[in-house]
Write a protein that binds this DNA or RNA. Structure first.
Lengths: 194, 194
DNA sequence: TTGTCTGCCTAACGTTTGTTAGGTAGGATG
DNA sequence: CATCCTACCTAACAAACGTTAGGCAGACAA
């Protein structure tokens, strides 16, 4: 059974994600979201059963975007050299953050303080994405592309941190995404040492 | 004129900072803060003129902690080699984040969505801290410790991102701060390349 | 003893919040 | 034409919010 997406539903998700990024989840009221959709607050309940469920759907979509971007990068660079592979995946993560709607960015701004029910619903999806990165990094160690003495878990976490917090200062209209990926990969691949 | 700190005032700041980190600024009500202090909400207004002003004071303190930690690291490692200097300052930043109360961590969780008045009040202080890092990094380039072809502005931002988002996964009770600093410095200094 | 100041309390205010119940216009379906 | 379903609306609810005014107990000073 194919559930054709109701026309207003997509709009609500888009506007909600945008506002969640700008003002945070708690800082965004259902009336704010409804107004952005030129609706009234009560109408949202035709499409979503609660504000939390709306957030869950936004977050889930954010992960889907990331997973798709990751898989696309993986298929094109599976046989490339180390820095090329890493750059492709960094670029893919940043693309999910900036080019494919605001869904992914909501994770950075609103996941931390979300209710435990929301977190519980989204964490399995999150893990799915993170395990893809873990697999990538371990494979790069196994194939001799990355040093064998690294704590890969921490490497992934700090890399995520570096990429994700770019939403605080990076502006797609004024900066170039490829340049940002280049800088990040240069830093993480070659290091700062003179 | 020395303004002796009222006894309850310090308690309010501590509890407010703790709750702001846990639940975010918008997710924390004045009644929550008051309850944590075993007070009533109205009583907070004897010490602070608004919720926003309370946040401003918490954030300002957070920066003071970071500045003090930075300066201490700077005086002890001014003449050390590159990786030692970097590690001292990374360790100092992490210490401000985890060891000196929750004040600094509030920046990570609540600055982004703070009102424009709060941001305007805190940004000058923030800049003061950031410029210390900029000065450090440029000096390390000038003295031949860091590669000369790096975009130092981005280096500082991604490094901040990597350190700050550690509050999402690092737990001081289960992890060692020195180890974390070691890993970070190893990553950023030597790079991942095999 | 009288007065003042500090640090809290009580009680309420107006507003905003998420949420619900019931209604209704319009297109699709029989 | 009659019926049903979709996608909204109106109007209200109880609860929670930041904030304010006024009061009161205790410490301290004159």
């Amino acid at each position: 059974m194919v559930t054709t997406l109701a026309p207003g539903r997509q709009l609500i998700l888009d506007q909600a994600a945008t506002l969640f990024v700008e003002r945070g989840f708690k800082g965004t009221s259902l009336r704010d979201i409804a107004a952005a959709c030129e609706m009234k607050a009560g109408s949202l309940y035709y499409h979503f059963e609660s504000k939390d469920h709306l957030l869950i759907e936004v977050l889930t979509r954010g992960i889907d975007v990331m997973v798709e971007a990751f898989d696309a990068a993986a298929t094109t660079t599976a046989n490339s050299d180390g820095s090329t592979r890493l750059k492709a995946h960094i670029r893919a993560h940043l693309a999910a953050l900036y080019e494919n709607g605001p869904y992914t960015a909501v994770h950075v701004t609103s996941f931390r303080t979300a209710s435990s029910q929301v977190r519980a619903a989204v964490i399995p999806e999150r893990d799915r994405y993170e395990s893809k990165w873990t697999l990538l990094l371990t494979d790069m160690v196994d194939t001799g592309q990355i040093r064998g003495d690294m704590a890969l878990g921490l490497t992934r976490l700090t890399l995520f941190g570096a990429m994700n917090t770019s939403i605080e200062w990076f502006d797609l209209d004024r900066g170039n995404l490829d340049e940002l990926a280049d800088v990040l990969v240069d830093q993480y691949w070659n290091g700062l040492a003179a």
